[in-house]
Design a protein around this nucleic acid. Structure first.
Lengths: 309, 309
DNA sequence: CTGAAAGCGCTAACAG
DNA sequence: CTGTTAGCGCTTTCAG
């Protein structure tokens, strides 16, 4: 900045004013400064600037996702990106890879880089260890040990939709396939029990099929695809019904098309970004849980009627 | 840091040594410092540290992708992430959304945050405007106007694989469907011409089908999926052959399975990360183009024989 | 509208 | 092994 000042024939402070877009600078001087900036390839030093600056905002939001490869994460990312960009800020994202240590390291990195806030799909059981004293919002999984807003799909209602749909097609013996702990699975259990159905619970679709269920309900995209493969391998894709939690690309092009309870990642991402900006702006209300409804999309696999009925 | 020093009863410099992991500190003092750090919730100021530090490394790599949602980008991301993490650094990524202005802004942001290097899948026609005087490597599209290493799939060879495969199954009249300009499409043209085939070139699969080709070659995942939909809608998925460039999830579960020329995003990502670390370490060789081979994966759609043959 | 001086939090270079 | 001093690049405060 000193070099720029020298070349433009002004004081350092005037350069600072121009670089920061203050309007109280003589246009002729400002032009000379901008010229010098361009010719010297000057780039302001963010860290030095932040050292003294009153307003500590950097216009940067950190996003931590367990697995950037999943279609759900990707859609969430895009929605958050759109909302954050619309407000003139930027999203930088980090891939946690389901590793709590990396979750902590990335949160720490964002905090050291003075991100204005964090949006996190947590992978660790408790989040207290990463508390980086900057505004944060959780998405898709409830945060524990660290009060913050949380945006969730309404899993319990989603499970209810799936189970009642299968029940309407005559099914009584339904296998739940998945590995997820806690609240989400609990939602499925409650839905099954409430409907008075026989429940088979397994991690592996092939094992589940041995128990002769007439319908499958799968907990995530990964498990849904595994179930499709197992059904096709056994030639049973038209004899056992299947409803998956979470939509995925090409679900409509398979044969039969896969019926899913779709989350709404666009609404979830937008809600998370909005909640975060409220926190950044200084909102100090109690931590909220924001629920986003799910939708059942019938495509064929969930409408396979029970055998012999 | 001053507060920590006071509480631990040592000088500021000793705190600095402990925080930076220097080993020349009395263990008892170091323990006292760490205790004070924890109790005060002290977090070092990266910007201030960098201001004076000789080694300007931050252990951070910036990754710019045109669209984080695409499976290819996601796979690339994961591979880069793995290689960078293995070397003890972190990847922060930004979604460019095919917008040259955002590409520039994100590169600028990473530069200001002192990223050690950049990996970019460029979207702008020329990259000279974003040249952020830090080491950079391009992936998946050749960089123009800014000499840097580039990692590419061997498109020309990939097109040859596809065309020869279709030719072997009796096809002479092949539609190329895609919108991509420049080198990649050029590769397809050359491959077609070299094989002496009749080429129909269209953006839209439905239009292409009107020209009665016996086989389709699609340029990207998006176009491949559009072609699958068009073929299924016309009931022609077993009468017209299809080979797609770039593999995608569930391609094997469709009926027929979709034959593709698969890129190798894992190898591409690893090569890009390695090239970048060489540049960061000070390698000053001429800009290279690193080619990663493609593989034809036969799944059914590309082996549909020509009608009546 | 412009500039001079002080100091943000930290590390390099040098003593002890 | 530990401490002192100077100064990184910038913005603040305050005086012209």
């Amino acid at each position: 900045m000193n070099d720029v000042a020298r070349q433009a024939g002004v004081s350092l402070k005037t350069v600072s004013r121009v670089v920061n877009g203050e309007t109280t600078v003589d246009p002729a001087l400002a032009a000379r400064v901008r010229e010098a900036v361009a010719s010297l390839g000057y780039r302001p030093n963010l860290g030095a600037s932040l050292l003294r600056r009153a307003d500590q905002r950097t216009g940067t939001i950190g996003l931590l996702l367990p697995d950037l490869v999943s279609p759900f994460s990707a859609a969430l990312h895009r929605a958050i990106d759109a909302e954050v960009t619309r407000r003139g800020a930027q999203v930088l994202s980090g891939n946690v890879g389901h590793d709590p240590a990396r979750e902590r390291d990335l949160a720490e990195t964002f905090a050291r880089q003075h991100a204005d806030g964090l949006i996190i799909t947590p992978v660790a059981a408790r989040q207290s260890h990463l508390a980086p004293d900057i505004p944060a919002v959780f998405v898709d999984r409830r945060a524990r040990g660290w009060p913050a807003d949380t945006v969730l799909a309404t899993n319990h209602a989603g499970a209810k939709q799936a189970v009642e749909h299968l029940q309407r097609h005559g099914h009584r013996r339904i296998a739940y396939i998945g590995t997820m702990p806690g609240a989400r699975r609990h939602g499925y259990r409650r839905a099954m029990a409430a409907a008075g159905l026989v429940k088979v619970e397994r991690n592996d679709p092939e094992q589940a099929l041995l128990e002769a269920p007439t319908a499958l309900f799968t907990e995530s995209r990964t498990v849904t695809v595994a179930a499709i493969r197992a059904l096709q391998a056994a030639g049973m894709q038209r004899r056992v019904a299947l409803v998956g939690f979470d939509d995925f690309p090409l679900a409509d092009l398979l044969d039969p098309g896969i019926t899913v309870v779709a989350q709404d990642p666009v609404a979830m991402g937008r809600a998370a970004a909005r909640a975060l900006f409220e926190r950044i702006a200084g909102g100090t209300a109690e931590p909220r849980v924001i629920s986003i409804p799910t939708t059942l999309i019938a495509r064929g696999s969930g409408e396979v009627a029970i055998r012999g009925s």
